Amino acid sequence: MKIKTIFTKLIVLLMAVCIISPLSGNVVHADAYKVVTLGGNLTDAQKEQMLKYFGVSRQEANVIEVNIDEEKKYLSDVASSDQIGTKSISCAYVEPTSSGGLNVTTNNIYWVSSSMIKNALITAGIKNANVKAAAPFNVSGTAALTGILKGFENSSAGSKIDENKKKVANDELMTTGDLGQKIGKDKAAGVVNDIKKQVIQDKPKDDAEVRKIVENVTNNYNLNLSSQDIDKLTSLMNKINGLNLNFGDLKGQLNDVSSKLKGAIGSEQAQQAKGFFSKFMDSIANFFSNLF
């Protein structure tokens, strides 16, 4: 009887362990839908610094690394060797969500902006996610999108992204970045987004129709772009047109980007005008001061 009692207790204990084990496993990996991608060439100390910045530990998120070969895979056709570099530095925090749209922030990224990254993510087909692109020191951020897309695919809430969409999204980021060097990052993101919106909506039949959309939008922005810039934008938009994106699915995202960028551009122009007026008044004051 005593043996039977002991045996019964052992069975109960075993069942309890079986029940508790998966529950405790779920607690450990409760935030596995969060992914952090780290530049493979960072030091161990820098990697820990980035985890701290993103506010997660290795137990709370899926932490993976991105190497320079992965970056070259998507950038070699659209970026120079100088733009790509020789080391993988950029990092990303990716948290797919069920709603709320795309929320993108950057830190220590100087060449691309959060709006450029957001535009590229829309092209890649991502609708809802919290994204942070960052580095332990100032970098261009040309490879940030590679890490973000890898992070999205490796999250439990993410899914495999079409390879062609990845390449076109990276092309969009680089083309917008190049244009941003000439006309300003926010304005460049606004121009590319407006052209893209028109292309996706109209589905132009050939290169000539795509070029006409590019020229119309750039003229609306009063931009005097070179023929080379127009060629680059037309080439990019031909690729986007080839993705057969659904305007109805993306309309809300594209309009949201447009409205926010127009506000940012208007604020930037107002600041420039304010600065010009202030300098003008200072010059008048200095003139009369020197006169008397």
Rank of each mutant, 00 (worst) to 15 (best):
S156M: 04
N193Q: 05
C91S: 11
G158E: 09
K118G: 05
S159D: 01
S98D: 10
K187W: 03
M116W: 10
V192Y: 03
T106F: 12
V191R: 12
E172Q: 14
A135Q: 04
Q181P: 07
L173Q: 12
G100A: 03
K150Y: 03
T142K: 10
S115F: 13
L149H: 00
G125N: 05
T176I: 01
M174P: 03
V191H: 11
K118A: 12
I89K: 02
G147F: 04
S114L: 08
G101F: 06
S90L: 02
S81E: 10
V112N: 14
K187T: 15
K187Q: 15
L102H: 08
T146V: 15
K167W: 00
S159I: 03
S80I: 06
I161V: 11
L102P: 15
D178M: 08
T123M: 10
Q181E: 15
A134Q: 06
N119G: 04
T175L: 10
S155I: 02
N138W: 00
V131S: 07
S115L: 08
K167F: 01
K182I: 14
G147D: 01
S81C: 08
V94I: 12
S98W: 00
S88M: 08
P136S: 06
I109F: 06
S90G: 06
N108R: 09
K167V: 13
S81H: 09
I89H: 00
S99F: 01
K185R: 14
A144H: 03
F152D: 05
F152N: 08
V94R: 00
G125W: 05
I89W: 04
I117E: 09
V94F: 10
S114R: 05
A135T: 02
I89D: 02
G100D: 04
D162V: 07
S156V: 12
N128Y: 03
I89E: 00
S140V: 13
S90C: 12
P136E: 05
K197H: 04
L121G: 04
A157K: 11
L179S: 04
N164F: 00
G190L: 15
S81P: 01
A188L: 13
I195P: 12
Q198L: 15
K166R: 07
N130C: 02
K182Y: 06
N130H: 11
G177A: 13
K118V: 03
T142R: 12
I117N: 10
Q83G: 04
F137T: 07
I89G: 01
A143T: 01
C91V: 11
S156W: 02
K165L: 04
V94T: 09
C91N: 13
T106D: 10
A124K: 09
Y93E: 09
D162N: 11
I195G: 06
K182G: 09
E172F: 08
I126D: 01
G125F: 06
K167M: 13
S80V: 08
A135M: 07
V192H: 07
K118R: 14
V191I: 14
G101H: 05
L179C: 12
A120N: 07
S114I: 10
L102Y: 14
T97K: 14
T175V: 15
Q181W: 11
E163A: 04
V192N: 09
V112R: 09
E172C: 02
A189S: 15
T106K: 14
L173S: 10
N108H: 13
G141Y: 01
K118Y: 13
Q83L: 15
